[in-house]
Simulated assay, not measured.
Amino acid sequence: MSGPQGSIRSMLALNLKRVRARRGLSISELSRRSRIGKATLSQLESGTGNPTIETVFSLSRVLEVPISDLLDTQRPAGLRVVRGEDVEVLSGEGVDLRPLQRIESGEAVFEVYDQQFRAGERRDSPGHVGIEHTVVQAGRLDVAVDGEEVELTAGDYVAFDAALPHSYAAAEGTVRSVLLLQYRTDQRLHPSTPHALLDADASPGA
């Protein structure tokens, strides 16, 4: 995940261009599918844009790749400690995310985030790739998935197909939680090679 070796902005700029090229999409076509303006996409690819959670999740959904394929720097080796204060925050509507780690195990890939919902605000998502897991650490969180609603408190867990429309709302005060996004390895363009380490002239993937 993004960290001291690369900011979210710089890693998204690097990886977005490569993923888009491997999908065979022009900026105009990606703009049409994602409903993100061409000027905004150009800024993101040049590293001058200001990505939000909504933007990154929309690109993940349209390009059909995990978030980490857009934000990852390199795969960790050995002991790794991630200090929350050192991780760049990716902010969006009602929520702040800190990307902590990507874990590959067998046919599954997990992305681990520290997730904080701002008091009195709501985050809506039309859906994206993967399975979403949330564990509430503090506060009261309202979760709606495809019309079904549930309330979570500290210690509660919820999981669902992230392709379904879903929303979160901090029902009472600020809510702290851990978010895990789960993918199949075949949902990644290059399951064994981090995008940040790929050569720019590598041949397109499937």
Rank of each mutant, 00 (worst) to 15 (best):
D114K: 09
A119I: 02
G139V: 07
V81W: 05
G120H: 03
G130Y: 06
P51I: 03
D69G: 13
Y183L: 07
S42D: 01
G47H: 01
V81M: 13
Q116L: 05
V109N: 04
R188K: 12
H166Q: 00
V87I: 15
L70D: 08
Q115D: 04
P126L: 10
V178D: 05
P99C: 14
S68Q: 15
L152N: 06
D146P: 01
T48K: 06
T174Y: 06
T55V: 14
E64R: 10
E151R: 12
V175S: 04
I53K: 01
G173N: 02
E64C: 03
S68K: 10
T153D: 07
D156P: 04
I53V: 15
E149D: 12
L97T: 03
T185A: 12
E172L: 13
V95Y: 04
V129G: 09
L63V: 02
Q187L: 01
E85Y: 12
E132Y: 15
R123A: 08
S91R: 14
L59K: 08
D86W: 05
L100T: 07
L181I: 06
I103Q: 02
L97H: 03
P66T: 07
E148T: 11
G130K: 02
G94W: 07
E45N: 00
E111V: 04
L179K: 00
T174E: 09
V143H: 00
V136T: 01
V56L: 14
R184G: 14
D96N: 03
A159K: 10
I131Q: 05
Y157V: 08
G84S: 01
I53R: 00
D96S: 02
E45M: 02
V145A: 08
D161W: 05
Q182Y: 08
A169Q: 15
T134K: 09
P76V: 10
E148D: 15
E132F: 10
A108Q: 12
V135K: 03
Y157Q: 05
R98E: 11
E88T: 11
Q115I: 11
V175L: 15
R123W: 13
A159L: 14
S91E: 14
R188N: 06
L164C: 09
T174Q: 13
V150C: 13
E149G: 03
S125E: 11
E149C: 05
T48A: 13
E151W: 12
D96P: 02
G173M: 07
L71I: 04
D142A: 14
R122L: 09
G49M: 03
T73E: 08
L141I: 14
E151C: 09
E93P: 02
V65M: 01
G78W: 07
V143Q: 07
T185G: 04
